[in-house]
Amino acid sequence: MSRVAAKRRVLKVKDAARLRTVDSLAAEEPLEIRLDGVPLTVTMRTPGDDFDLAAGFLVSEGAVSAPGDLAAIRYCAGATADGGNTYNVLDVRLAPGVPRPEPRNFYTTSSCGVCGKASLEAVRTVARWSAAGDPVTLRQPVVAGLPDRLRAAQRVFDRTGGLHAAGLFTAEGEPLCVREDVGRHNAVDKLLGWALREGRLPLRGCVLMVSGRASFELVQKAVMGGVPVLAAVSAPSSLAAELAAEEGLTLIGFLRGTSMNVYTGEHRLRAPDVTPSAGTGSAGARSPG
């Protein structure tokens, strides 16, 4: 099967020093997703967890919401010179009675998950679940620790330095699933597909942590998965914050160390417990005379 990383000879330069060595690059290959034998879309992705990617893509599109919506997922025969399989074509079979979504007549790059959408209204897919009523609360130190926990689970990033990551965590900061991909939207789709196939949708009480910025399409995917909290190490876009506010999603950006910006849904973030300093009397108490 396709590799998640590839070797390439490079010339490494630092000041006057030059060294010929071998570097590891994150793999990027096309994946064609077919639905009941009919081409639906092509996305550029890092091979691996392809079944989850296809299932998560259909969750994001609002086509499926439960494991029973999928009858089967299988690789189609590829066209390699030796007659082997490229593992770059998947066919998803929907269960009887599940409506087919309209084909998307474009390919998705590794940097954009909603390119080609005709209008903003078309992107705002009607979600099956609302995050607004999710009562989950998070302790601030738990949220602050999520980037390190996500980074610790990035196995391929250690070899290539070129992959995005997305992780699902409990409200206590325990990891449920982590996925990597050259496309940040693909990493999130792989998580949603895992959750669908495991029967975990909607993802009540969970936090979605991403290694990059919080773009509109990532907020939309979080909403489609019923995730109440999305945290990112970088900035959100204005449209991402707008959608998060409309859908009742808690959106956290610039999560670095102990600092963060909470753009929406701040009611879910609990401040750290403050322990009074030694010798400090309770409020309203008189000092000894």
Rank of each mutant, 00 (worst) to 15 (best):
L19P: 00
R20V: 14
V22F: 07
D23R: 12
S24Y: 13
A26Q: 14
I33Y: 12
G37V: 09
G37Y: 09
P39G: 11
V42G: 06
V42H: 09
M44D: 06
M44S: 10
D50F: 00
G56E: 08
G56D: 12
F57L: 15
A66S: 10
A66Y: 05
Y75H: 11
C76L: 15
L90H: 14
R93W: 07
P99S: 05
R100W: 00
R100L: 06
R100H: 13
Y107P: 00
T109P: 00
S110K: 12
E121A: 15
R124M: 05
W129S: 12
S130Y: 02
T137N: 02
R139V: 08
P141Y: 10
G145V: 07
R155F: 09
R159C: 07
T160S: 15
T160P: 14
L163T: 11
H164M: 08
F169Y: 00
T170C: 04
L176M: 07
K190R: 09
L192R: 11
W194T: 01
A195M: 00
G199Q: 03
R200L: 10
L203I: 06
L203Q: 09
V207W: 04
S211H: 08
L218C: 06
A222Y: 08
G226P: 04
V227F: 00
A231G: 13
A231W: 10
S238H: 10
G248Y: 13
S259P: 03
M260D: 14
Y263M: 04
R268P: 04
R270H: 02
S277C: 02
G279M: 01
S282C: 03
P288Q: 00
